[in-house]
Simulated scan of single mutants.
Amino acid sequence: MAGKTFYDFKPLDKAGNEVDLAKFQGKVVLVVNTASKCGFTPQYGGLEKLYKDFRGKYNDDFEILGFPCNQFGSQEPGSNDDIQSFCQVNYGVSFPIMSKIDVNGDSASPLYTWLKDQKSGLLGLKRIKWNFEKFLIGRDGLVVDRWASTAKPEALEKPILEALAKKAPVAPTATTDAPAAEPAATATA
């Protein structure tokens, strides 16, 4: 998967439709695998606060994407509709909660396979250890950092601010790729 970026993936939304992550190009994105019946589930509240705070200050330059997963203690047993309802009713979640996925194993989402290849976890392990692991994607579409489930959302404020402070890369254009014009010769008397 060399040469790929976050923008090369098309995971499914809550309705099962592909979401072209290229639409987030130039933005900072926090990706979190979530679950509704986990000891870390209250982090939804902290994630929503981050989302509202940063969206308020930086408009749509910041996004959070939640990816429900039932691979850890069967802590996300519901349907996509059940998950959406739970998140909205209990935590007022307004950031996108995507379709339920696997993050480890043979049926792992290609996005999560790429994320884990980009940034290893604790002790260099690639696999996701539990619900609410977090990946920060920079404006260039590459993984900036990864945090374990125990990292509270408020602890991510500084790295998010640092990622937001970096300018989005500019795509080359015909004018920027052209060699500089030679200065005109000046006439001498």
Rank of each mutant, 00 (worst) to 15 (best):
E162F: 04
V144D: 01
L161F: 00
K119I: 01
V31H: 01
Q118L: 07
L115T: 00
P159V: 03
E76C: 11
P179N: 12
T113P: 00
V103I: 09
L65V: 12
V93L: 06
L156P: 01
P77K: 06
V143E: 02
C69I: 07
A2E: 15
K119G: 00
I160Q: 02
T176N: 14
Q118F: 04
K100C: 04
K158P: 00
G141P: 07
T175Q: 11
G45W: 00
D13T: 03
S36Q: 09
Y58H: 15
A178W: 05
D106H: 13
D106I: 09
G16A: 05
K152M: 09
E76L: 04
D82R: 10
D102Y: 08
I64Q: 02
Q84A: 12
G121D: 02
W147V: 01
S74V: 12
L47F: 13
K119A: 14
Q84Y: 08
V28R: 07
Q84F: 05
L50N: 01
L142C: 09
G121S: 06
F95N: 03
A15D: 15
D106E: 14
E157N: 09
W114Q: 07
F67H: 04
F67N: 00
M1E: 11
P153T: 08
S36Y: 04
I83T: 08
P172N: 10
L164T: 07
K134C: 04
A185I: 12
Q25S: 14
G73T: 13
L65K: 03
P159L: 03
E154Y: 15
L115H: 05
E48T: 11
L111T: 05
A15L: 11
Y112D: 00
F135T: 03
F62C: 04
L12A: 13
F54M: 09
L142H: 14
L136Y: 02
G26V: 12
L12V: 05
F86Y: 14
K126W: 03
Q25V: 07
D145T: 13
V93K: 01
G66V: 11
T186S: 14
K167R: 13
E154N: 15
V144W: 01
I128P: 00
A180Q: 12
G66A: 11
D106P: 08
